[in-house]
């Protein structure tokens, strides 16, 4: 059977591979190389070594958007996961209306980032104007909080569904056994349920962290980096370096930032995965 299938490889493999080469392999390789060049288009690249990286690291704006992204990621990962877990605990109890609420909480996840950003921009600006604070375009604290609220609203439902699946897979016999041994509800939660769903917590933390780090659409639509780049996250900073400025020096610097961003995202994924794997219960 293998031999017959092997003969058909052009039909099975080629369409995907050609598209993959055009859509990913070539741009990725080119991107890696161009981070070491000065250029305005792919064709006029001039090799300059690591100069772009030095410029990228010494860019004040890049550093501040890195810290902004970092703070944002920590706050949003914690708030999304804690709230989603609590809601999941509530919705694994049996009551009517339970499925309806799950569906409602999940809904915002289907709306695209740009639309979400504008919906919340309108809402938050209204609240700010009623309480007499400066609007989003002039208010970086509100921008930060707004991004977290938006991110929570969008992601809680998704994480909740994964947590519910995890909680439902905890065997009832374990929970009954802990009850018979006299554990309180809180003890059952912290000593039985949470250790048992640790793999699920790993997945959710990993997902929210990378989502927060890669956030772009929501950032662009909600604050656009205003006021004066103070709420600009990494992805938006890279985009602005590429497209908001004219001149030969920016594109190379943008590509160097993109490579740094790529390395950060990969590193975070691995570190987080390893840390959480170590703390999982041996089964």
């Amino acid at each position: 059977m293998e031999r017959a299938l092997k003969k058909y490889w052009p039909i099975f493999l080629l369409p995907t591979i050609i598209a993959f080469i055009i859509g990913f392999i070539v741009p990725f390789a080119e991107g890696m190389y161009l981070s070491l060049c000065q250029f305005t288009t792919v064709n006029n690249a001039k090799f300059v070594g690591f100069r772009n990286f030095i410029k990228a690291f010494s860019d004040e704006q890049f550093r501040s958007s890195f810290w902004f992204t970092f703070r944002f990621a920590i706050c949003s990962v914690l708030s999304i996961n804690i709230i989603a877990f609590i809601i999941a605990l509530w919705l694994t109890k049996k009551f009517s209306g339970n499925n309806f609420l799950r569906a409602i909480f999940f809904m915002p996840n289907l709306i695209g980032g740009i639309v979400l950003g504008y919906i919340w921009q309108i809402l938050i600006n209204c609240v700010l104007s009623i309480i007499g604070k400066p609007l989003l375009a002039l208010n970086s604290t509100a921008g930060f909080l707004g991004l977290i609220i938006l991110m929570c609203w969008q992601q809680i439902g998704y994480m909740m569904i994964i947590y519910i699946a995890g909680l439902n897979s905890v065997p009832d016999s374990l929970i009954e056994a802990s009850k018979i041994d006299g554990a309180t509800d809180l003890q059952t939660l912290f000593k039985v349920k949470i250790p048992m769903v640790m793999p699920t917590i790993t997945i959710c933390m990993f997902l929210t962290l990378t989502n927060s780090f890669k956030l772009f659409d929501q950032n662009l639509a909600l604050t656009g980096g205003d006021p004066s780049h103070q709420t600009e996250m990494l992805a938006l900073n890279i985009y602005n370096t590429f497209y908001a400025r004219a001149g030969a020096q920016w594109k190379g610097m943008g590509q160097a930032k993109a490579v740094i961003f790529f390395v950060i995202v990969i590193l975070i994924s691995f570190i987080q995965l390893k840390l959480s794997r170590d703390s999982e219960v041996q089964q």
Binding site: L13, I17, F20, I22, G23, F24, I25, V26, P27, F28, E30, G31, L34, T41, V42, T210, F213, K214, F216, L234, A235, I238, Y239, F242, K251, G254, Q255, A258, V259, F261, F262, V265, I266, S269
Partner: peptide
């Protein structure tokens, strides 16, 4: 191939956005 595909899932879009749009224009 399998590992390349998995790898491409982790790479952020900003990494390839400029070169991808140039490649698309060229083709």
């Amino acid at each position: 191939l399998y590992y390349l595909f998995v790898f491409s899932m982790v790479v952020p879009f900003q990494m390839v956005m400029f070169t991808l749009s140039q490649t698309a224009d060229m083709l």
